[in-house]
Each structure stands twice: as structure tokens, then as C-alpha cells.
Nucleic acid binder design. Sequence first.
DNA 1: ATTGCCAGTGTCATTTCGACACATTATTAT
DNA 2: ATAATAATGTGTCGAAATGACACTGGCAAT
Lengths: 250, 250
Amino acid sequence: MTATKPFNSAEFMNHISLDCVIFGFNNNELKVLLLHLKYSKEYTLPGGFLKHDETLEQAAQRIVKERTGLNNLFLKQFKAFSDPDRSKSNKAIFDADMAGTKPDMTFFGKRFISVGFYALVDFRKVKPTPDLFSDRCDWVSLTADVTMLLDHKQIIQEAISTLRLQLNQQPIGLKLLPHKFTMPELQTLYETILGRDLDRRNFQRKILNYNILDKLRERKTGGAHKSPYFYSFNVERYKKALEEGLSGIW
Amino acid sequence: MTATKPFNSAEFMNHISLDCVIFGFNNNELKVLLLHLKYSKEYTLPGGFLKHDETLEQAAQRIVKERTGLNNLFLKQFKAFSDPDRSKSNKAIFDADMAGTKPDMTFFGKRFISVGFYALVDFRKVKPTPDLFSDRCDWVSLTADVTMLLDHKQIIQEAISTLRLQLNQQPIGLKLLPHKFTMPELQTLYETILGRDLDRRNFQRKILNYNILDKLRERKTGGAHKSPYFYSFNVERYKKALEEGLSGIW
DNA sequence: ATTGCCAGTGTCATTTCGACACATTATTAT
DNA sequence: ATAATAATGTGTCGAAATGACACTGGCAAT
């Protein structure tokens, strides 16, 4: 990566920002990629502003690429957050100030409507890199109790609700899991998103009946106990099935 | 209603607008409330701008109230439209000019991100009133082929897709139908939103099994043929059932 | 070799689904 | 009046999906 370009508020639209909830799945947990601010010591969603000639979707791709290094990600806007007080007392401005970047207060002082996007990434492919204002860049478990900037906690909650509702319409498993995965891993992902347990055998039967998985000959080794088979998504059939919506609700 | 207040762009946020797709159900058809511009002779969605101290949701309530006269409507944002060229060559400016309202071009000339809302209203309760720039205010059938302003046709399409996806999570029937309705009316509503036919008997069995309808003693008279019973939603049970999501997909 | 744990596979009763047939009733044509 | 028409109310049946559960098989630690 090259050095960070200095922030020039003239490049960006006033009043419009966007925040990305970047989901990853690791160690059988759903996690969100967060920045940890150097000075205010709070977590924040990777977000940014809209350039004058960009769509929101293009801006989201750009911002997530800056953050994860990944191109062509699965990204979806899910809600605009518009509480008039939401961007009051933004501690990130303090951090920008401390970092030596004279924050353009006529820009940062404005009211911002933020459009929330969620991104689904393969955890192992991401190379998170802290930026000028953040000392760390962490995958934070959803169950972790951390302090967050502004309304970012609420934004994450809404993102998860959206995930849950769209589980049968969006290629969520495909985007969150590595190419090869085991049935227990897929089940845990579903259980995490849905927030409840599923019967192991019924889950397997149902998901296999959709005909969207290819069972590989290979098995996962190394773990204790019986080694599970690997599966991978049959992308063509998966996409086709999603158009109709996977019937039933888990 | 009182006289229209003159438009003062200082009251509003720059760059943010919203457009409302107001759905109504009448004569067994799903319809959208549209304004017909006096001079450019095009249909447009009732839309508006965000005041400095309003949330988007509050603005949507205000705008729909100005348009339909109804309070406390069911309203839901579904997407932000952000194509940089979407508000280029806005013919509504021409109409504002012709109407004698000197349009504030430093305001209207800006790029606008529009947040789409859909509203569900009881057709019979709405009193649509054309405004300064519109000569008519029509309920337009979704199948009608009319010319529309900017990307409003696309916005309507997205609204319907959203409706379809949310049919099992949102109180769509409750909000679109009058208090009393017949089974065939409810079925037609579902068929319209889903875009396909349903078996009359299976539909009845399934919807009754949800236990969200109260069968009334009264029947609908006047129509030809056997008179159907009236039903109404049992609001409490309906809301409860929606929280879980009505199982299955129609 | 034994034990513990997890994965793979199968069974069964119940419920739901999809595709129908038939009876009932209000209007309209004769 | 009477019959024809057409839409509604209700029921049936086999197929498929669902939920609950039991048994077998393999890997590793002891």
C-alpha cells in the first residue's frame, strides 16, 4: 500500500457519509472489523465520505478496499441513519486533531446522514491495516462488550438484523466462508446469524436438499475426533436458488 | 388544508432528499400515488427535503401527510439512490419556474441523494391534493405505462421488490386493506405483490392457520355471485406472528 | 485397547403442501 | 319463475417437508 493521502474535504460531498459493517467468520464466531482510535480509545466502524462523482456503492467499495485490501466485495446498503444529533460530539475529530491533521471543522462540524453498508468477507483473506487515527484494527466478536463511537453500536445491530432477514436471499454463506468449509462450520454460521441452535441432522438434510453444495472427497484433518468432509458452494446453483429465495425459514 | 407555504431552501439540508412510494389497494389493483406536473406533463413521486432538525423518518411522515392528509402512517425506508447523474436535468425545476416560484438554483442545482420510503395506506381514507406544481394527483396502477421524472420508475420498482421480500415480516395487509375485507381481496393483494397466482383454497387454509384473522359474521353484499365473508386482522396476533416472520414463502 | 467426542447416516410420526372435486349462493339471462 | 353462470365455502388425498431422535463410524488422548 502507498502512504495515506492527506484528507481534503473539498473532494467530498457535505452531509453524506457511510459506515461499513465488515463481517468475518473465524473460530466459529461472527466478527466485525473495527478501528480502535488512538486517542479517544474507542472503537469505530470504518467509514468515509462520498466523492462528488461516486455512487454510494462505489464509495463503499473504495472504503472497504482501503480498509481490508479486498476488491469486488459483497456489499449491501441496509439503512440510512439520520438522527440530527448522531454526529454531535464526534470524538474522531479529536483524534484527527491529535494526529496533527488539522481537521476541517466547517466540514466535520456539519450534520451527517450516514448510509450503513454491510460487507461479507473471507476472514483469512483480509489484511487489516490501521490508519493515521487508529492504533489498532481488530476483529471484534459480536458478543464482546466494547465502547463504540457515536451510534455505531446501533448500526451494527441493524446490520445483523438485516443479515438475519436476508439469509435466504443473499449469498451469505458463500461470501463469509472460505472456499472449502465443513458442515459444522456452515451450521455454526447459520446459528450465529439466527441466534439460535439448529438440529445438526435436520440442518444437513435441508441444506443438502437445496442442491447448492458440492461435497468434496477431502476431509478436514488435524482436529480431534472424526474428520468432517469439506464442502464448497456450487456458485451457479446457489445464485439460481437465491433468486427464488431459499424456501422456509430456519 | 391551508395555503401552501412558499418554499424556502434555507429550511432544508443540501444534498439530501427523499421520495415516497405511496401504495394503495383499490379495485383489486395495487396503485401508487403520483403527482402529475403541470408543465412538463410527467408523473413524479411525492418527495421532499430534509429539515435541519428532522430525522428522515420524521420528514417522510411530514411529506406524506402534506400529500395524503394522513397521520401516523406505516412508512419504511428501503434504499438510498445515489447515482451522481440522477438529479441532472430535473424537469420539476422547469415547473417550479413556470409556476412563478423562482426556484433557488443554488439549491435545486445541487446533487441530491434521495432516500426512498414506501408508505402503505388505506386507499379510501386518502384525500390526495395536487400542489402548486401539479395539475393532478392520481392513483396510478402499477401496470400503467406512464412517463416519469428522473429515476422515479426505478424507485417504484425497488419499492415493490422490497414489499415482496418483506411480505412475511411487515404488516402489509393490515396497512393496505380497509378494516373489513374479504378473503378474495386479501388473496388478490398477495398475488399482486408476489406477481403470481395462488390457489384459492390453499391460500385460505394457510392464512387461516396463522390465526391472525378474525372471521366476521357479516358478508359482503352487492357484488355478483355468492357473497363472501368479511374478515379483519387480529392486530395483536398479527404483530406477534410477524415478529417471528410468517413461516414459508408464498 | 479404551474412552470421549464428534461426524455421518437413517428412521418415523406428524405436519404441511399442492392439486383437486363438490356443494352453496347471489346475480343475470330467459 | 326458472335455469344458467360464476364466484365462494369446504373437504380430501397423496406427496413432500419437518422435527425429534438412535445408531454407527472414525480420530485422538490416555
